[in-house]
Amino acid sequence: MSDHDHAPDPLAIRAEALEKLLTDQGLVTAEAIEGVIRHYAEDVGPMNGARVVARAWTDPAYRERLLENGREAIAELGFGGAQGERLVVVENEPQVHNVVVCTLCSCYPWPVLGLPPSWYKDPAYRSRVVREPRAVLREFGLELPDETEVRVWDSSAEIRYMVLPQRPVGTESLSEADLAPLVSRDAMIGVAQVEANRE
């Protein structure tokens, strides 16, 4: 039996049919679709959020603007989205840890983090992180002291959240450019912390 005997995936067929029906009507072009895919593959991703975090760590006035209005502050670095949503940046503190979820679907701060990882969209994460955040964070390898308060932020179409992690101790001498590579996607979702020595 060769590959050619496999029946085509009905979902792939449906996607192709939808695209053809809409492009045939002139509602959208193949070039525009490819442009979107290329943009998300090449220009948008956690490296954008890492630059925002590193700037906030090294520029107190920027940090204030970021916490005040995330959408405007990330636009200063050239990042923005067409979805028109608010971006709320929540800051970790010694006694407070923040973690982000979208319980109903998959809302996520695309301009700063790109597209969400598959676990973020999975029913297990979406339902459990609200009910038992500490247990879920432990499974990610993040053990928080009992006295740390955990705040869970549920995203929506109107409001997306990003975590501003704590700057790790021992990084006082590092520049903004040196700090950005330390900041992981998971730290900006809130399922990890930033380590001074990132593998």
């Binding site: 996607a15 895919i37 990882p117 598959s118």
Partner: peptide, 28 residues
């Protein structure tokens, strides 16, 4: 690498096509 943090976002080409289709129509 930090750009994607190792995540494969799309498992099949049609998934990225329907994502692109949705956003392109919204952008328009």
């Amino acid at each position: 690498p930090p750009r994607s943090n190792g995540e494969i976002v799309f498992e099949a080409p049609w998934e990225s096509r329907v994502f692109g289709l949705t956003l392109a129509l919204h952008d328009a």
